[in-house]
Amino acid sequence: MTVMAERAVQSSQMSVEEFERIAAFAAKETDDAVRFEFINGRIGVKKVADGDHNNSDTDQRDRQEKPVAYGAAGIPLYMLIDRDACTVTLYGDPDAGVGYRSSRKEPFGARLLLPEPLGIELDTEKLKQYVD
């Protein structure tokens, strides 16, 4: 990609500040019936989850896009609770270039140490009751 084309792509993406203003306004107008997500410079809108996360859009966002975007943004930890596989994956060690440099996957029922800034041990045994 040429430098000019790259700048055009970057300038077409929304800033975090713009997103936060839009999301705050929409939350008031919809009584929190929808949720806004900001991933890779794009806004995503979806209805508040009713407990069923089994569509392909959510799969793509939660398992592929979010770990890269959240890690690149410097969010210290990202936890994915996968009810289909009955696992919990904890992503850590954020890196602006790649997302997260480490991940740890455990089955429901395992104890998972959440490092600082949380610094707690999570007992995932109770997650078993939320699986069909």
Rank of each mutant, 00 (worst) to 15 (best):
residue 8 A to I: 07
residue 62 D to N: 05
residue 123 D to Y: 05
residue 13 Q to N: 04
residue 25 F to Y: 04
residue 35 R to V: 08
residue 131 V to F: 02
residue 63 R to C: 10
residue 111 R to C: 15
residue 59 D to P: 00
residue 12 S to W: 06
residue 44 G to V: 02
residue 129 Q to P: 00
residue 125 E to W: 02
residue 125 E to R: 10
residue 105 K to E: 13
residue 81 I to M: 09
residue 120 I to L: 11
residue 107 P to S: 11
residue 88 V to W: 06
residue 79 M to G: 02
residue 50 D to H: 01
residue 7 R to L: 15
residue 8 A to H: 13
residue 24 A to K: 12
residue 103 S to T: 06
residue 55 N to P: 11
residue 116 E to Y: 04
residue 40 N to L: 10
residue 34 V to T: 03
residue 33 A to T: 14
residue 54 N to V: 04
residue 102 S to M: 08
residue 23 A to V: 13
residue 99 G to Y: 01
residue 3 V to R: 08
residue 22 I to D: 09
residue 42 R to D: 04
residue 36 F to E: 03
residue 98 V to T: 15
residue 111 R to K: 14
residue 65 E to D: 15
residue 50 D to Y: 01
residue 80 L to E: 07
residue 122 L to C: 12
residue 6 E to V: 07
residue 33 A to Y: 01
residue 70 Y to T: 03
residue 72 A to M: 09
residue 3 V to Q: 05
residue 127 L to T: 07
residue 59 D to K: 07
residue 12 S to E: 08
residue 44 G to H: 10
residue 111 R to N: 15
residue 119 G to S: 08
residue 48 V to M: 02
residue 1 M to N: 09
residue 77 L to S: 06
residue 48 V to Y: 00
residue 6 E to T: 13
residue 66 K to T: 06
residue 94 P to M: 14
residue 74 G to I: 14
residue 72 A to L: 03
residue 17 E to G: 04
residue 16 V to W: 13
residue 37 E to Q: 01
residue 107 P to A: 12
residue 123 D to G: 07
residue 116 E to A: 15
residue 63 R to I: 06
residue 94 P to V: 07
residue 100 Y to R: 05
residue 91 Y to G: 03
residue 37 E to P: 00
residue 48 V to T: 09
residue 128 K to R: 15
residue 125 E to S: 14
residue 49 A to H: 08
residue 20 E to I: 00
residue 42 R to C: 08
residue 61 R to Y: 07
residue 37 E to G: 00
residue 70 Y to E: 12
residue 36 F to S: 04
residue 87 T to A: 01
residue 67 P to N: 02
residue 5 A to D: 13
residue 44 G to D: 01
residue 122 L to S: 11
residue 33 A to S: 12
residue 25 F to R: 10
residue 45 V to E: 03
residue 64 Q to T: 14
residue 97 G to P: 10
residue 86 C to H: 12
residue 131 V to Y: 06
residue 35 R to D: 01
residue 52 D to I: 15
residue 74 G to M: 06
residue 131 V to L: 09
residue 120 I to G: 01
residue 124 T to Y: 05
residue 59 D to L: 12
residue 103 S to L: 04
residue 115 P to A: 13
residue 89 T to G: 14
residue 31 D to V: 00
residue 55 N to V: 12
residue 109 G to D: 11
residue 115 P to H: 13
residue 20 E to V: 00
residue 116 E to R: 02
residue 8 A to K: 11
residue 93 D to F: 01
residue 97 G to C: 12
residue 21 R to C: 08
residue 56 S to A: 03
residue 22 I to W: 01
residue 54 N to T: 14
residue 113 L to N: 11
residue 92 G to I: 02
residue 114 L to I: 15
residue 75 I to F: 14
residue 71 G to L: 08
residue 52 D to N: 14
residue 108 F to L: 09
residue 75 I to L: 07
residue 63 R to A: 13
residue 21 R to W: 07
residue 15 S to F: 08
residue 50 D to K: 00
residue 60 Q to D: 11
residue 13 Q to C: 01
residue 42 R to Q: 12
residue 22 I to Q: 08
residue 62 D to C: 04
residue 91 Y to F: 10
residue 69 A to F: 09
residue 33 A to K: 00
residue 92 G to V: 03
residue 81 I to Y: 08
residue 14 M to N: 06
residue 118 L to D: 09
residue 22 I to S: 02
residue 10 Q to N: 04
residue 34 V to R: 00
